[in-house]
């Protein structure tokens, strides 16, 4: 869980790279709009985007459940599926983090190991890819909103993603980031952890939503759908008005779609300062 050794930034941003979108199982089934937002951003940044057919999952649930052989089999499938692209990009630090762990699954210097290393060297999380690899500067836009950003664990600690999404968000005029306390503390999702240890997970996500609300932001934003569904689900259960979105939806200006866990697209709650609260 230390920062991946495979994050090698090319010296010159490539010209019109051929990028495979790794859609991830959660975005594929639960929130396709994140996939479309990601494509929109990649194309705006000058990429040729393709979606390899019949994608499933990175294998992380099996890996973290101790099912190493199952994980190896899935890894081999994904190594093959994503072989012919300049880059593999996903709207998730967690799933890309898993791709960066593929080499650990295989015997050092085996054929699988080398192929896994090669894939890891091309695999990037979207905000990191846009900033670190492409050095993309989005055209200035305007969105009047106050957000707070949750740093998902794998993105932060395996891929070094902290500044990248903020850097992109800060280019949006009238968007204000209110940093919450403990933004880098786990939200308690942890894949199967939240099902196996529901009471502990609940306390962790409650701390997270407390911190998010205390930031007095209107919108909770992050880069991993698992964490976002966990936090949004808690906020909704608590009856909170705070909305939750994936960072790509904001960057791609796709705010006409209902926020995570919302049935319809409701306007953002006025900021607390608008209500005359002390900020």
């Amino acid at each position: 869980m230390s920062v991946s050794p495979y994050l090698q930034v090319p010296q010159q941003p490539p010209h019109k790279p051929r990028v495979a979108l790794f859609i991830t199982c959660l975005v594929d089934s639960m929130r396709p709009s994140v996939g479309f937002a990601t494509i929109k951003l990649l194309e705006a940044a000058g990429c040729h985007v393709e979606v390899p057919d019949l994608q499933t999952c990175c294998g992380q649930p099996a890996y973290n459940s101790g099912a190493k052989q199952d994980t190896q089999k899935l890894a081999r499938l994904n190594i093959k599926k994503f072989a012919d692209y300049d880059y593999v990009v996903a709207p998730s630090g967690s799933c890309i983090g898993m791709l960066h762990q593929y080499p650990d699954l295989f015997e050092k210097n085996s054929k699988d190991y080398k192929q896994a290393q090669e894939l890891a060297g091309r695999a990037w999380e979207i905000t990191s890819f846009l900033t670190d690899v492409l050095q993309y500067q989005p055209a200035p836009t305007q969105q009047s909103m106050t957000i707070t950003y949750h740093d998902s664990c794998a993105g932060l600690r395996e891929l070094g993603i902290h500044q990248q999404p903020r850097q992109l968000l800060e280019r949006i005029d009238k968007l204000q980031i209110n940093e919450m306390a403990e933004a880098d503390t786990c939200c308690g999702f942890g894949g199967t952890f939240c099902i196996k240890f529901p009471d502990i997970s609940n306390r962790m996500v409650s701390n997270k939503t407390d911190n998010a609300e205390a930031s007095r932001a209107q919108l909770l934003v992050g880069g991993d759908l698992g964490c976002l569904m966990n936090m949004a689900g808690k906020l909704k259960r608590q009856g909170s008005h705070m909305q939750t979105r994936h960072v790509t939806e904001i960057l791609a200006n796709m705010l006409d779609i209902p926020a995570i866990g919302e049935g319809e697209n409701t306007p953002l709650r006025p900021t607390n300062s608008d209500l005359g609260y002390e900020v």
Partner: peptide
């Protein structure tokens, strides 16, 4: 299934069909 999740929080529903289907 997955009562551990809904015991303490709601589960955001899927948006409709899958991304790959829509794509």
């Amino acid at each position: 299934v997955g009562r551990g999740w809904t015991l303490w929080r709601d589960l955001p529903a899927p948006q409709g069909s899958s991304f790959q289907q829509q794509w």
